[in-house]
Amino acid sequence: MSMAGPLIAFRKAGKTFHVDGRTVEAVRDIDLDVARGEFVALVGPSGCGKSTLLNMVAGLFQPSAGSITYAGTEVVRVNLKTGYMTQNDHLLPWRDVVGNIQVPLEIQGMPATQMRKRVASLIELVGLTGFEKSYPAQLSGGMRKRTALARLLAYDPETLLLDEPFAALDAQLRLNMQIELLDLSRRLNKSVLFVTHDLDEAAALCDRCVVFSPRPGTIRKIITSPLPRDRNLIRLRHDPAYQALAAELWDLITPTLALTRGEAG
């Protein structure tokens, strides 16, 4: 494995689904390299196949055209180097908050005392103190999201595949989670693929931002962020470089809005 090469490489990758006799081409001709430790945001209209790309990096299914390699190896089965967090939190309804967060630790076979400590610190990190014994059905949408994030952080995967992870959170909490995520990904040199509909969020977090066309999704433009890797998210609003980046994203996305209006989700 060469450290110099990209961590994730899409080569002419495409995916076509066959549903009820209909053929839907989700993405086409994707060429993209993601370096180790890089934070890449994926933005574009609904249904342009951003989630499909994450699924393929995770190895949940294979591209129907082209290839995807991870650390120099083609992804053909479940990719254990990646951690996935989707729009849906996918918590286990029969486990309380603590039980859900410790699932990956149980799988790793971590000793019970160490596991308790780790889970306690994660619960504090995501601000769920006092809800340790609550079941998912008793939590709000935001709290479920935070539980899912804590579970993702618990098993500490090399690459984070995040599909609108903060969409359900209120503004303050979202900012807090963004700060935590950015700090964590920098400190531990995590690679992040971050799908979002929130262009300001994409501009604030990314090293590079990939803008997609409507379905079948193709890459329209890749923008490299002018912001430093070490950035202060709270002060960002007043940064002209950030404002220019967000504005550029808006200008790219708005013309395609008319095409996808009326298409749900």
């Binding site: 949940l60 849906n88 996918h90 286990l92 990956p104 149980e106």
Partner: peptide
């Protein structure tokens, strides 16, 4: 749920883990 199973496999779960958890 197939999604739940996939999430578990991504966490490195074995067939036995998926069965019991």
């Amino acid at each position: 749920s197939r999604e739940l199973e996939s999430i578990m496999y991504l966490m490195g779960a074995s067939e036995r883990h998926v069965l019991t958890k």
